[in-house]
Design a protein around this nucleic acid. Structure first.
Length: 661
DNA sequence: AGCACGCCGACT
DNA sequence: GTCGGCGTGCTC
């Protein structure tokens, strides 16, 4: 009889010991009794003896033999992640597993013929790389047998994807595998197409949360067995087990989507860097506007900076960016005369124009003109947005919906007005102003139906659509050769956000959406509507000067004492009342370990969005000069908090390297 | 997190 | 008399 330590999906930072008739490999999935429940867990160790009295040790119910045990590299990687992010190991491990593997019923797997290796594939090397691309490929390609973190800093349209493809080709030639992470699900189809076209015969597994359960498991096992050569996915794919991982690529590495905001809070980008380090392989972080943390690491020489300064298509230049002073121009439905005229010109020339604004719905607010009542979410401290076509009010934070009231619930007045503008409203204004344009709206509402995005994407590419209003969704990574004008509406809001990361995000977003214009031979133009044309951020955007902008932001962060000048974490609490959440945090601070002044604890404060889905949320910021000091402090504090009993109705967790305040 | 046990209020 | 409120404690 053997003793096995099993990681289980429970919010307890402890492993659970069971007895087993025969020795079980570490990484073996098992079904075990747990209280009255039956859970699936993973064997992570073989303790010689257990602290649990022998009589209380229960036997495992079954070893789940429908797939090989998870590899040692995966076990140590998830262990590191759980320590770094202060998450219980079992909880983190089990959230990393595809949901299907958390069930005890055996997988019915299709027999995979060319399982381990040997399938024929080739690399189609069409449209030769530019000298800059070739240089980047050489530099990074020379480091494939060791760990190195590269920042591929390439302007929009500089052909980062081509560089990735060449590096992947070299890795596949060595018989190894590549992991490619992208920030959002809708970016996977076009990369998948690239891989299919350029690597005929190669197996590509696509992993993200919308994939069918069976496909996710197939892709996961394919990567683990080595039969899938390329894994393409969103942040969750960083946890894929590999047989022979040779390269990790994180595209648009600055993107906030790489940080999981609920459940296990991890940064897939940072974990990718760690994983590559542990595996002794290179990792490539690609961006036109790197995260300041990444940029700072590159400046310090911890990451290797590889630059692509020019667009890859011969003759293509960077778009001309201008600000349009809203105080000096006539405005129609939020659109300046200058922008409308520019759209006119593009449509007349048979080119395409994009109006960008990052706000879904018809209007962000519905208010009563008589008494000042504003439609709000019943579960969140937020206004509900007007969705006119569906005749619904919708909370963009929790999804709460209601009908649009006919009259004011407070005073009965029928004078209810939408305030502000969302994509739906701009779409209506553009439809009225350009009745002959072939107009499309692209946001997560209009693209909700399956296949809708792929269809619209194709229609934009082939010119069936020539005027687009869209959000974020359109800003990243897409290549529309006929698109020569981008108009940015309502960017100013972000200039005055309290979040210290707001300028960084706005800068990235503006350069990114600007980058959609003029990627082919046609010259691109970008018009940013603003009431603050002199603002330094817009000055830097116009100059396309990321380095200058990043330098001054880093100075400011250093002066103000924010990341990356210091290491940060939050202790977050959620409760039904604000006072309970704040009270818990005050109590927790009183029991924090003594760190000899090397760690700073701030006062607990409500979060910016203080109530979300019925929970009052608050947090306490922790800072330290050195990462290691912060890590040791958090580990000790966590064990103290776990030893105490948490007041009823309060939930808490740590958020290491937070990006949301 | 579940899921039990346990001790006090309004109903068939 | 019981059904059920949620406080407390445990899960190898």
């Amino acid at each position: 009889m053997a003793i096995v330590a099993v990681a289980l999906e429970v919010p307890i930072s402890r492993l659970f010991d069971y007895s087993a008739d025969e020795p079980l490999a570490t990484g073996q999935r098992v079904s075990v009794p747990f209280g009255r429940r039956q859970l699936v867990g993973v064997v992570v160790g073989h303790p010689a003896r257990s602290d649990v009295p022998a009589g209380q040790l229960r036997p495992i119910t079954a070893a789940l033999a429908d797939m090989p045990p998870l590899p040692a590299e995966w076990l140590s990687f998830t262990e590191f992640a759980s320590e770094y992010y202060q998450q219980p190991r079992g909880e983190l491990m089990m959230t990393a597993l595809p949901p299907r593997l958390k069930r005890a019923t055996p997988l019915r797997r299709k027999p995979v013929l060319a399982e381990a290796s040997g399938q024929a594939w080739s690399f189609v090397c069409d449209r030769t790389p530019t000298p800059a691309q070739a240089g980047a490929i050489e530099t990074m390609g020379a480091a494939l047998d060791r760990n190195a973190t590269f920042l591929l800093f390439g302007v929009t349209g500089s052909g980062k994807t081509e560089v990735y493809l060449h590096l992947i080709a070299r890795v596949l030639e060595q018989g190894r595998q590549a992991l490619v992470l992208v920030p959002e699900i809708h970016l996977t189809p076009q990369l998948q197409r690239h891989f299919a076209e350029r690597f005929p015969g190669a197996r590509v597994a696509v992993l993200h949360s919308s994939r069918a359960a069976v496909e996710r498991v197939e892709g996961w096992i394919g990567a683990q067995s080595g039969s899938a050569q390329i894994v393409l996915g969103t942040r969750l794919a960083v946890f894929t087990p590999f047989a022979r991982l040779g390269l990790v690529i994180v595209d648009e590495e600055h993107d906030a989507s790489f940080k999981q905001q609920d459940g296990s809070r991890y940064s897939a980008r940072d974990l990718a860097v760690y994983r590559a380090h542990a595996a002794g392989i290179p990792v490539v972080l690609g961006s036109a506007t790197p995260a300041l943390e990444t940029w700072s690491n590159a400046l310090k020489g911890r990451y290797n900076l590889v630059t692509l300064a020019e667009r890859a298509v011969p003759g293509a230049t960077m778009p001309r960016i201008e600000v349009v002073d809203m105080r000096k121009d006539a405005i129609e439905h939020g659109l300046t005369g200058r922008l409308l005229a520019a759209i006119d010109t593009r449509l007349a020339r048979g080119e395409q124009a994009l109006v960008f604004l990052n706000r879904r719905g018809y209007a962000p607010v519905l208010a009563c003109g008589a008494c000042g009542w504003v439609a709000s979410c019943v579960r969140c401290s937020a206004h509900t947005a007007v969705h006119l076509k569906e005749q619904r009010l919708r909370c963009h934070h929790c999804g709460y919906e209601s009908v649009i009231p006919r009259n004011c619930p407070d005073c009965g007045n029928v004078d209810l007005h939408p305030f502000g503008r969302g994509t739906e409203r701009i779409e209506a204004a553009l439809a009225a102003r350009f009745p002959h344009a072939r107009l499309a709206r692209v946001d997560s509402d209009s693209m909700r139906r399956k296949g809708e995005w792929e269809r619209t994407h194709a229609e934009i590419r082939d010119g069936a659509i020539n005027l687009i209003v869209g959000t974020q969704m359109l800003a990243k990574g897409h290549d529309f050769p006929g698109l020569t004008l981008v108009g940015v509406v309502n960017a100013d809001a972000a200039l005055f956000a309290t979040d210290y990361r707001a300028p960084e995000r706005l800068f990235a977003q503006l350069l990114q959406v600007a980058g959609r214009a003029g990627r082919a031979r046609l010259a691109g133009e970008v018009l940013v509507q603003t009431r603050y044309p002199e603002h330094p951020l817009y000055r830097a955007v116009i100059a396309g000067d990321f380095a200058g902008f990043a330098g001054s932001e880093l100075e400011e962060r250093k002066r103000a004492g924010f990341s990356p000048a210091v290491a940060e974490a939050l202790l977050r609490a959620e409760a039904s009342s604000r006072s309970a959440a704040l009270g818990f945090l005050r109590e927790a601070a009183a029991h924090a370990p003594d760190a000899n002044g090397r760690v700073t604890l701030y006062d607990p404060v409500p979060m910016t969005l203080s109530r979300l889905a019925g929970w009052e949320r608050a947090h306490l910021l922790v800072q330290a000069r050195a990462r290691g000091v912060l890590q040791r402090f958090l580990a000790e504090w966590r064990s103290r908090l776990e030893a105490q009993r948490t007041p009823r109705g309060v939930r808490w967790h740590f958020d290491v390297d937070p990006i949301e305040f």
